[in-house]
C-alpha cells in the first residue's frame, strides 16, 4: 500500500477476503470441526478449556502453601501443574491465534473497561462460569462441543440447560442495562 509491493488486484481481493473481512459462519464451523478431528486423530485427546483454569488456580494456592492435592476433584481428573498441562498450551494458543488474526486484519484496538458495573459483571460472570463448569465437569467446549462430537449423552444433557442459563442471564442483563 505504500508503493513498495504492488499486488495484482485479484490477489489483493483474495487476501482481503481471507485476512480482513469476517468469514461466513459456516466456514468457521467447518474449519473448527476439521481442526478438532485432526487433533483427536493425532493425539487421541479432545479439546477442552476450563479444567486448565482449575489446575492453574489450584497451583496458585499451592504456591502460597495451601494443600490442594488432596481435593476430591482430582479423583476425576489428574492434578497437573500448568507447565505439564496441555490445556495451558491450547488456551494460550487461542489468545495468541486471535491476536494474530486481528492484527493481520488491522483491527486491533485496546478496549478499556467502560465502568464499574462492567467490572463486576465481568468478574461475577466469569466466577459463575468457572464454578458451573467445575460442577458439570466441562464448559461450552469440553462439556458441550467436544462431548456432542464424541456422540456422548452427557453433551446432549448439557445443551438444554446451558440454553436455559443463557436465556435467563440475557434477560437479566437486558433488565439491568438496557
Amino acid at each position: 500500500m505504500n508503493g513498495k509491493l504492488r499486488l495484482p488486484k485479484q490477489i489483493k481481493k483474495i487476501l482481503t477476503k481471507i485476512f480482513v473481512r469476517p468469514w461466513p459462519y459456516w466456514v468457521g464451523g467447518l474449519l473448527i470441526a476439521i481442526a478438532n478431528i485432526i487433533y483427536l486423530a493425532v493425539t487421541n485427546k479432545y479439546w477442552a478449556i476450563t479444567t486448565g483454569f482449575a489446575r492453574f488456580g489450584a497451583w496458585l494456592l499451592e504456591i502460597v502453601g495451601i494443600e490442594v492435592q488432596t481435593w476430591a476433584v482430582w479423583d476425576y481428573y489428574e492434578y497437573l501443574r500448568p507447565w505439564k498441562d496441555r490445556y495451558t498450551f491450547s488456551n494460550l494458543g487461542i489468545i495468541i491465534g486471535a491476536l494474530i488474526a486481528i492484527l493481520l486484519a488491522g483491527q486491533f484496538k485496546w478496549k478499556k473497561l467502560k465502568n464499574k458495573k462492567q467490572f463486576f459483571l465481568a468478574l461475577g460472570g466469569g466466577w459463575l462460569m468457572g464454578y458451573g463448569a467445575r460442577i458439570a465437569i466441562g464448559c461450552n467446549i469440553g462439556g458441550l462441543y467436544s462431548a456432542i462430537s464424541s456422540l456422548a449423552l452427557n453433551g446432549w444433557l448439557y445443551l438444554p440447560f446451558i440454553v436455559l442459563g443463557i436465556l435467563i442471564g440475557s434477560k437479566l442483563l437486558q433488565k439491568w442495562l438496557v
Binding site: L121, A122, G124, G125, G126, W127, L128, M129, G130, Y131, G132, A133, R134, I135, A136, I137, G138, C139, N140, G143, L144, L157, Y158, L159, F161, I162, V163, L164, G165, I166, L167, I168, G169, S170, L172, L173
Partner: peptide
C-alpha cells in the same frame, strides 16, 4: 445444574 450456572455466567460476562 452446572450447565445452567455456566450459561448464566456466559450471558452476563
Amino acid at each position: 445444574i452446572g450447565a445452567f450456572i455456566f450459561g448464566l455466567g456466559a450471558a452476563i460476562s
